[in-house]
Design a binder for these strands. Structure first.
Lengths: 294, 294
DNA sequence: CATAGGCATACCGAAAACGTATGGGTTGGC
DNA sequence: GCCAACCCATACGTTTTCGGTATGCCTATG
């Protein structure tokens, strides 16, 4: 069974004439006639009644026609769908993000992606430091917004932006009068920490403090940036967060940079090398645009 | 787009291996590999990720797979359906019948056909003398039970049985004492005629009467054999009908043959020459069986 | 009776597919 | 750490099949 034969058959059936169909198919009439007869031979039954004024479908031909044209349409749709997915016009993109980025990036990234990738099913998945690699490698996540990047031979990384670490404190705090805070001033002050020390942001913070030989007792570990800021506002302690966290911060919170350090933490997009696709590229464009305006 | 390529693709996708698929397709591995790559080239996008342990579908490949296997199934179903119809296992048979045969033949023919042609859609259509030829030629009717046969170059005829003409009268009529009635005894008696002189049964009757130079005034023209017999029972007149009409006749009606004529009227099956099919043959078998037992 | 329209057949050149032989890369065992 | 096994890709020669041109046959039409 050859799809071409079916295509020929459908053309002849619709035109009710070998000659007309040959014209439509941009081919000569005799080979088309031969193909139709071959199809009939393969079937063991005539599909057409040959009259002096063209061809007319038999019952068997009628039965074949409906299925054949459906099959043709399906095949066509299949290759179109595959092309559309390959070209990034359609498909599915599972975007992973680390929770520190959620409040700052997602509200602008989601609409941006929905606008620039119509026809693409978007999923957004929160990642933790312990699962992000596995999810990427298993393709449960197509691309991940990480902070900082993942390093793995199978995973490709594009830096999208950097974020300085900043100090979040109540606006009424004396430290808030400074435009930049010396790290040493943090010594002994209570720290509202992000969850689980393995979290990259958390570990970047503790590495920075250790480097400056500053000790801050951890008074609370919270799950979200929003919770952290609420506790800061309540006077429970200070938080050290990427600058982007100041978006979505409630009024009454002051963010200040540090005077003596230029510690930044990178925002990176990570994806499987073999999953590289136009979809990923479109995602990068959108993500860069959003991150640039943080 | 070639259906073979799709078939190959589906095999590889299902086996997740070129080698395994080649085995299943009874072909060597290299040409299959080539065909897959050609399909990918035609699409402009990879359908598989080549790993060291076989092939793995990409998103585009997944999208193609579902449609392609559906299309394959449809094509297969199409040729199977066409074959089934051509072989008479399935299809549609529109059986035409002339109304004089309805009461005698249909009650036994219909169940017989339904039994011997399962899977075939049966339609039963009453024919009139004026439309039967047209309906056959237009294929609105696949085969017609006629009385007598149709003569036309495009139409093929098979005689299924013959029916003697008989006289129908009230059982209490003096004529009913005879086991056979001389035609001359009909002279001047009132005749309950079947509708429209062009009806074959009607015209066979009038030809017979003319041949014997017997005149019977027509007192009533009725549409159905049943009506005719009711009028006979009511004493309105006599009817001359094919013997098969006595089946389904109400009690109180006597049927008698004639002494001096052997006029029979043939029951024939008629169909378009170019519609000859196993279905028609099966029909003939069933119809002969039923008519033989009239 | 001649012409035109439509499908079928015959033959030839071109393209595509299949098989065999072989190469390259990775995995896993000795 | 090397060698064998596995799997896919490439190359080349052979065969099948397809499409084009030329032509024949049949029927309807004027």
């Amino acid at each position: 069974m050859d799809l071409r034969r079916l295509r020929y058959f459908v053309a002849v059936a619709e035109e009710r004439s070998v000659g007309k169909a040959a014209e439509r198919l941009r081919m000569a009439q005799p080979p088309l006639s031969v193909q139709i007869r071959k199809l009939e031979a393969e079937l063991g039954a005539p599909l057409f009644r040959r009259g002096t004024r063209g061809m007319d479908l038999t019952e068997a031909g009628l039965a074949l026609l409906s299925r054949a044209s459906e099959a043709l349409a399906l095949a066509e749709e299949g290759i179109e769908a595959a092309r559309a997915i390959a070209s990034g016009q359609r498909g599915r993109l599972a975007v992973g993000y680390m929770f520190v980025l959620a409040s700052a990036v997602l509200p602008r990234l989601v609409p941006e992606l929905r606008r620039s990738l119509p026809g693409v099913d978007l999923d957004f998945v929160e990642l933790s430091a312990s699962t992000r690699e596995t999810l990427l490698l298993d393709r449960a996540v197509s691309v991940a917004l990480c902070m900082p990047a993942i390093h793995h031979p199978e995973i490709q990384v594009a830096q999208i932006g950097t974020q300085p670490l900043m100090l979040a404190m109540p606006a009424r705090s004396p430290l808030a009068r400074l435009s930049a805070v010396p790290v040493s001033r943090l010594q002994g002050r209570p720290l509202i920490a992000l969850p689980r020390p393995e979290e990259p942001t958390s570990s970047a913070v503790s590495a920075m403090l250790r480097r400056h030989q500053v000790v801050m007792p951890v008074v609370s570990r919270v799950e979200t940036v929003h919770s952290a800021l609420s506790l800061v506002l309540a006077g429970e302690g200070l938080a050290i967060l990427p600058a982007c966290a100041k978006l979505g911060a409630p009024p009454g919170i002051a963010f200040r940079r540090f005077v003596d350090i230029a510690d930044t933490i990178e925002i990176a997009a990570c994806w499987r090398r073999d999953s590289a696709s136009p979809l990923i590229r479109s995602f990068l464009k959108g993500a860069e645009k959003v991150v640039a305006h943080l």
